[in-house]
Design a protein around this nucleic acid. Structure first.
Lengths: 330, 330
DNA sequence: ATACATCATGTTTACGTAAACATGACCGCG
DNA sequence: CGCGGTCATGTTTACGTAAACATGATGTAT
């Protein structure tokens, strides 16, 4: 900056003013400074800027894996929103499963140059880490039940699972089987609970849920079990990937979808409409979730005090070809 | 830090020594300082640290979208590697399609607090932006043909596409049809070129490629076209998502896979083994690509001079159930 | 015993920026 | 014509850290 100032024959303060777009700079001077900046290949030093201002114009996103569709879409949306707001995004991956991983993540967290943090993490991991969350840094959480303690944004999982289950009941199925996500995942538990509640409300018997791990493979395995039972006519999979595996199992077992068995998923991942048959599923608006995360986080950063509570983004059913009324059996 | 120093009754310099793990500190003093740090809730200020050291311990990842499987996996791997190396990752999204988007991305790029940059971007966008890439910042590029100018890491697309095509020829198919990715994508062009070259080498006729947009939907549409042609017995899709759409089109058209038509994909996305039937595909080792990106980038950061050239990560065929020898037609 | 390492610790300084304050030029109004 | 006000610009300072240098205490070899 000193070089630029010398080149333009002004003080460094004037250069600073030009860089920050202050109005009280003469047009001639401004142009001279801009030219000098180009000539000197000047790049503002964000470290010094942050040091002076106490702000980083950056938010951290903590996640334990990027490899699920939902996390990725949420991250994408958060990134887009934060960029619009002039914030950059720093990724803070957590090595799951190990106490070390969580501990080192928290350590790194405390040292990161961020104004706020978005946590996209299962509740169970959070429980271990939350105790030592750095104080004084605003936090917004996705996919968790920590709503009483923190600001939480999430899809309305309960209503989504209810819609899926009710849709199958409305079609005339006597009951709905459920292939659930892993018990450790809070969203999986919520979807399963809502499925159960919906069946109970309708006064229909509740078949035992089959617990998968979100993967297509686990869906396939449970799908084989379900396909072998003639009384199964409707399946609610806790996500689309498992639904894909279920479809494969049903096809291989000679059960036609939707004629013999109806299948419904959750997420509406990009290619759910290219499944065979195209999958009826619950659409999650990840973009909106990400956007709200940033809105909430910016509020927290500006107000500088906690504001716990959950914000739910509605989910809606997308009707495709994998669900139908049960065919008559006489 | 001054507070901590006062609490521990030492100078701030000693606190700094403890924080940085220098050995020349008395054990008693060290413990006193650590206790004071805990008491004061001290968090090192990374901005000041960067200002002093001239390093940020951070790398930037430029991408134009997070919503393709490959980009996501690459980002995941880069993040994992950089975390191991003690670097954090800053996301720098580019709004595609608009000159503004590219320009503003470059501007932000120049201001970012990063020691190096990984660019995961189509070549065409890069062409427009590369001119103004900030000088003096090491850059590694994925998915691009800029190898002569920059350091490039990528999957060996050419060999992967060759393996896929050759596998189908080896099974006895007289030729292989290709559903390509968008022309704008360099990886799509490379796969298509390699498919064509393999067919020409084998002396088989080269059917006109059908150009999709990576989506399952576009695969479905081209799949319908191909399904209607009786002479089509083998299809090479440029990615798994399009292969999924092709499978759907074939099923709906009554063409059995693999008995009537063989289908092969590219990527080996997580649920390719749950397609119906499980998809034979070309496995890309995104983890290795991401790891190599970091290795190369750290080399560049340390040596401080450019080192252009491409590093290719081998791809390998994963045999599943969607390919078979053509059935005899008499 | 003297001189000279070795080691823990303290003091000074600079990194690049922008707020706060200072300066001086020019304007309009009574 | 002089006064306060506005405006462009310059000067000083502080942000939190760590390198460089300084100090003083202890150990050790001759």
């Amino acid at each position: 900056m000193a070089d630029v100032a010398a080149l333009a024959k002004v003080s460094s303060q004037t250069v600073s003013r030009v860089v920050n777009g202050r109005t009280n700079v003469d047009d001639d001077t401004r142009e001279r400074v801009l030219a000098a900046m180009g000539e000197a290949g000047y790049r503002p030093n964000s470290a010094a800027r942050s040091l002076k201002s106490g702000q980083f114009r950056s938010i951290g996103v903590v996640l334990y894996t990027l490899s699920t569709f939902g996390n990725m879409r949420t991250l994408d949306a958060v990134t887009a929103s934060s960029t619009l707001a002039g914030y950059s995004v720093t990724l803070l991956p957590v090595a799951l499963d190990t106490e070390d991983g969580v501990a080192s993540a928290v350590t790194r967290l405390a040292e990161q140059a961020v104004d706020g943090i978005v946590i996209i993490m299962e509740a169970q991991v959070l429980d271990r880490a939350s105790i030592t969350l750095p104080t004084g840094v605003p936090v917004v959480i996705v996919d968790s039940d920590a709503g009483s303690q923190f600001t939480v944004v999430d899809t309305d999982q309960v209503d989504g699972a209810r819609q899926a289950t009710q849709h199958l009941l409305d079609l005339g199925h006597t009951t709905v089987w459920h292939v659930a996500g892993p018990d450790a995942a809070f969203s999986a538990r919520r979807r399963a609970a809502s499925w159960r509640a919906t069946l109970e409300e309708a006064g229909t018997p509740v078949p035992p849920p089959l617990v998968g791990d979100w993967s297509g493979k686990s869906g396939y395995q449970h799908g084989l079990t379900l396909a072998a039972r003639k009384d199964v006519t409707a399946i609610f999979a806790a996500n689309d990937q498992m639904a894909l595996g279920i479809l494969r199992a049903l096809h291989e077992s000679g059960r036609a979808v939707p004629q013999s068995v109806s299948v419904i998923g959750f997420d509406d991942m990009p290619d759910a409409d290219s499944f065979y048959p195209p999958l009826t599923t619950v659409h999650q608006d990840f973009g909106e979730v990400g956007r709200l995360c940033m809105v909430k986080l910016l509020e927290l950063i500006e107000s500088n005090r906690p504001h716990p509570g959950a914000t739910l983004v509605p989910a809606h059913l997308v009707l495709r070809s994998s669900t139908a009324s049960p065919s008559r059996r006489d």
